[in-house]
Design a protein around this nucleic acid. Structure first.
Lengths: 354, 354
DNA sequence: AGTTAGCACTCGGCGGCCAAGAGTGCTAAA
DNA sequence: TTTAGCACTCTTGGCCGCCGAGTGCTAACT
């Protein structure tokens, strides 16, 4: 990308983008003349040049300039100041995570809430997932005469629950014995391996009862479903924060962003991509493959434990987004989440490099 | 409430409300003259009378009529046709619930989604809760050298998870023994009773180890938190459906409704009230105690198993809401949920009577 | 060559105005 | 008691013209 911009031109571009991000109104040459120490006419010339280079536009002849996608991109990659969160903010965030460190299933809620608040836009978080989930533990609990609650714990710490029909008057002791047997049979097994166990019954000295087979099949099915339906587990927060931005002046925009967040748009392309790459990903406006995201920017980062389990945190906002702050927020939260996961697994974490 | 309305006046009121609900525009006397077989002037006279009675208003001199809160109330209680869901819709809903009957934690999601879709507004569902939760089962699973995952199952079937620090090199067998011991000690106990167990250690022949005390305290704390934080568990869906209503033409409305749904407004008064009463509750506009709900109506019903566990389902929409359909939808979904719970507990269910 | 003052030009936004239309309330007649 | 007729009210939408904001260009200046 055009690195042949001279120093002043860069400063003009940077100033335009910063002010536009700040005020949401096209910026006039006058606005910059003062701070750059040159006349408005000079600024106008520079702006015209930046427009020729495809980094700025204006909406009509007598309107101020605003950045194009390429302009934002150049800003993010070459111009932006790295705005780290203040140590005070960092401490507050750390503290909040510390308080719920033992409640696994609140992590993603907190992450989304904190991210939405610090970046002032909508935040998106997927729960951590293993590349291939492995069986850890199962428990069978009698609920009533005919029903059993099966609690399944996967290796990465996720817990799934499900009810199963049982023979009447099966006692809790019997159930515990069965659970114990299955725990041994399925120890650390993958979904596929468990399917195989249900079918072939290897190493099962007393052959498996029909109920035991049912349980094992349910385990396998639950694990497979879990692997397939990550989509449904995506969590978001901060819609309200985002709606304060002036681009959401009309309700059609709101509907649009709601269906992006609640429909599966993000997941189909962005999240897998973020999971597969290191560092913080910034996708700006029309750079998206999905057309419905044309007016939005997305910042995503993977978090988790390398080679083991990982998830994605990020924000979604209008193209005119506070990139420096959003990017540092995403990076920081991803780091915090990785630390938490690291404590849980005692392995090396993903630290966003770039 | 004014039962001295003559037949024709009732028909006028009913027609006005039905048409207003349908079109969202004030209805003119002309519109009703045809269908009532009288002239528009007559209809105007009747409308004026209904306005004197406080059941209708108009926004300015030359605008059509629209219902007041009292008008809606009269409609709901005396005029409305009971519009049951079609058997086809009922079958579809039944079918969807049947498919996930074994996945407890998907019930509320499905209920909210189905309700939002059939009633075409935002739906709200709280998970079933026991009046006082009792301990059912605990499981301790070694995660790594220093961490243990505690899975706690409450009597009503809810599952909570939490990590605990443990002495290094505690084996899974040791953990299972400890879990077994605690399961016996805490059998069917309430949160208070469990606190007492941790403190006084009655009937504990070998005295409890410090780790065992930690686990028991954690169980107690989790149960207490669960009892206090029902609020955070409220689930909603169908915002998008609701935004299609013309009353959400301006974004301030959207923000308003978002903060109602995500802030705790509903829970503080409405949900406890719905939990305490039988049948379907309809609260219209200004009848709310909370002022922020002045422009909205809420329809709620308790569901669950009588005297044991119960939750709330309902919808939130603009005052101009399709009451007949919404009410039947809420009633029906509450019934379905009660059936599901009944199967789980094998006891008598709450069937909304009125 | 680069910078800047000056100026004409363009365009959106806003307020005022007017006409059209929708609907009512009232009155008087059926 | 109902209804036709009519005056009156109030909203809505379109149209016009003005104002202000900003630009682009040119010519002068350094």
């Amino acid at each position: 990308m055009n690195l042949e911009l001279n120093e002043r031109r860069r400063r003009v571009l940077k100033a335009v983008i910063q002010q536009y991000i700040d005020t949401a109104t096209p910026v006039a040459s006058q606005d910059l003349a003062r701070s750059l120490g040159v006349s408005s006419a000079t600024v106008r010339n520079e702006m015209a040049a930046l427009e020729d280079a495809g980094l700025l536009t204006h909406l009509h002849t007598s309107a101020g300039r605003l950045p194009t996608d390429a302009g934002y991109r150049f800003f993010v990659e070459n111009l932006m100041d790295r705005a780290a969160l203040s140590t005070q903010e960092q401490r507050m965030i750390q503290h909040q995570f510390y308080q719920i460190r033992s409640e696994l299933n609140q992590w993603i809620h907190l992450a989304a809430a904190v991210l939405a608040r610090t970046a002032q836009t909508a935040a998106v978080v997927t729960p951590p997932r293993a590349y291939e989930s492995r069986f850890k533990h199962i428990e069978l609990i009698a609920i009533n005469d005919a029903l059993v609650l099966m609690v399944l714990v996967l290796h990465e710490g996720s817990v799934k629950q499900q009810t199963l029909p049982a023979d009447p008057h099966t006692t809790q002791e019997q159930l515990s014995r069965i659970a114990g047997r299955i725990n041994e049979l399925c120890h650390e097994a993958s979904a596929k391996a468990i399917v195989a166990i249900a079918q072939t019954q290897p190493a099962a000295q007393p052959p498996l009862s029909s109920f035991e087979v049912l349980v094992i099949e349910s385990v396998a099915r639950a694990m497979q479903q879990f692997e397939e339906h990550v989509n449904e587990l995506i969590h978001h927060d901060g819609l309200l924060e985002m709606l304060h931005q002036p681009e959401f002046g009309q309700v059609t925009r709101v509907r649009e962003v709601l269906s992006i967040l609640e429909g599966g748009t993000m997941l189909e392309s962005l999240i897998p991509q973020a999971l597969a790459s290191d560092g913080v990903q910034v996708i700006i406006g029309g750079e998206h493959s999905r057309d419905e995201l044309r007016d939005y920017s997305v910042i995503l980062s993977r978090y988790g434990v390398n080679g083991d389990v990982a998830g994605v945190v990020g924000v979604l906002g209008p193209r005119r987004m506070a990139y420096p702050r959003s990017i540092s927020s995403v990076r920081y939260i991803a780091g915090v989440m990785s630390d938490l996961m690291g404590d849980l697994y005692g392995e090396r974490k993903i630290e966003p490099t770039e």
